[in-house]
Design a protein around this nucleic acid. Sequence first.
DNA 1: ACCAGGCTTCTTTTT
DNA 2: GAAGCCTGGT
Length: 702
Amino acid sequence: MSKHELNPEQEIAATHVEGPLLVLAGAGSGKTRVVTHRIVRLIDLGVLPSDILAVTFTNKAAEEMRSRIRAMKNAQVLACTFHSLGARILRESIGLLGYKPDFAIYDEEDSEKLLKKCLEQLQLNGDKGLLKELRGQISKAKNNGQSPDGVADRQLAQVYGIYQQALQDCNAVDFDDLLYLTVKLLQESEEARYLYQHRWNFVLIDEYQDTNHTQYTLAKILVAKHGNIFAVGDPDQSIYSWRGARYENILNFERDFPGAKVVILDQNYRSTNNILQASNALITHNPNRYEKKLWSASGDGEKIGLFIAQSERQEAEFVAHRIIKLSCDDHLSLNDVAIFYRTNAQSRTFEDALLSRRIDYKIIGGVSFYARREIKDILAYLRLLISDTDLISFLRTINIPRRGMGPSALEKIVDGAQAKKMPILTFCQEYGDSLKLNTKQQSGLSGYLRAINTLRNKLSSLKLHELITEVISETHYLDYLKEDPETEQDRKENIDELVGKAAEWEEEKEEPSLQTFLEELTLRSNAEEKVDLPTVKLMTLHNSKGLEFTAVFFGGLEEDLCPHINSKDDEDAIEEERRLCYVGITRARKYLYLTASTFRFMWGTLRAMRPSRFLKEIPSQFLQNLSPGSMTKTIRREEPEEFSDEVQEGFSSGDRVYHQQFGSGTVEKAYSSSFGLTYDVYFPQARTTRTLAAKFAKLTAE
DNA sequence: ACCAGGCTTCTTTTT
DNA sequence: GAAGCCTGGT
């Protein structure tokens, strides 16, 4: 097939105009092309670009779609995530729900702090686990469209209600509210419903299998008047149930939208047959599944490399070594190579191996730039320039830099404001002098308020990046950073970067405002990448969705890691882990390497690991075993110290031993591993058995 | 109010 | 093995 033609099924989908259509698009089946072609054709038919709404799952996908359409048609359609769509609607119409339109958006950290305050108020703060538990349950309720009155559990209903009121008092919404309140608004206000049901006549929803109930309701309301919904997805790639996603939504599409057409795209244009068939074999192990088999017209290609290492380091060394080989022998650019893993914590070992070989790499996702403490400090000050009510930003900044404000002083302020039912900053301004604070606190508070006022006066006259510079100087933030010389340099650089990004951002935007800037930063987990050096991309499996690479390394394929230990004993969760693994594998075009290690450091101790069940579910005909054990002995000899089974004097089963960290224990098993003499020791105090290598763990007889 | 040091718990995954 | 929480000393 030529690059510019579509196959018959793709053609049907791309030329669809009115009515509901579901595209079941298997991995690598040319989904993105179909979607962009269809939008371009709509525009060719005379549909106004402003009539089209495309909702994607990530910012990255939205950007990609925008730029493709711009390239083909020079037209601007609204392509955004569900969350930013919600933010957009709420900015216009949240007044109907009693919030002010300049509401702040709280990220997870902010909302957790607020919830913690609520729990303190209810004197429920004793239990540490409770906060996490309730946070999860409130989020779940919102994603299921339940109001505080609508949840069955009495305690949850109470806390949820108080939390929701606290958010409103701060004039803030959390991530889930962006969806939940939008739906609430559309359900309760006929005016709003009319407005948004007529705003977009063609609605496209990507990754439909990952919509949660609230997103699904939102989609249904938006298209209720015209039924022009174009949904794209693949039930086998549903990997966000932990965030409330229901892949049933995609299976129920025909029921929910009567008269819907369904197009199945099952020809894969991405991967070689070895990779594709391996992925088919794997996903077939999911019993509850809408049957679908991808096929490909391309050749078998290379077999999938399998490497079972003896240590994390060896696993990473193998990957780094292979990357060099691929780039030399096959002239692959580093941009064509990716390393996937289940948990963020795994990235470190790979980084070390790449660093030591001077292979450039970039981590996609991971700890967000905007989540760094120093960045959030500055952003909190910026928020307070817009809002008097933002309690969380106030609490964050009031003692940064130090103004002698400890818990007791803050209690006075917060309680006072609450008693007077005043916004926190207004209260400080009007009653700050009558709070019986000591002199240091008194002058600290007035200095703080003065700084905010000074900055507010400059709000309209300064450019955004200048304003940020002013915040830094007005608050003497750099002096504060000096208190910790260890981190000072890093944090300073990050702040410079923030100023730079702000300057860049306001150049690009037609109407740059502080509010939109803050909103975009909150809804954008990681900064967009600048195009520079070719780099190997490191990311979690979740982050890999929607991407493709010529060569993929998939690490840590071990039981309890992938599938993750938290999915144990839950068949649905195991199926989702399998889909996650499927997503990872189907990202690869030509080369795929699956790696695992028999030992791994977890939670600070060495643990023996077993190969993932998923490896066994891939028929061996597609695999080539490259593991040290199955290779020639020359390679084995490269690392003699790690593989020697030298006899040591040691303990045997039943011996009582003492470990500096874990205390007293009993040896359950003594055996030889790649680390030499190894023990499984049971520690009664922690009620766990740990695997300890004799040469690392200093065990003494008790 | 602040700090240092010890204790626990923790890890999925993201907007 | 890190980050956050609590505690006790200043």
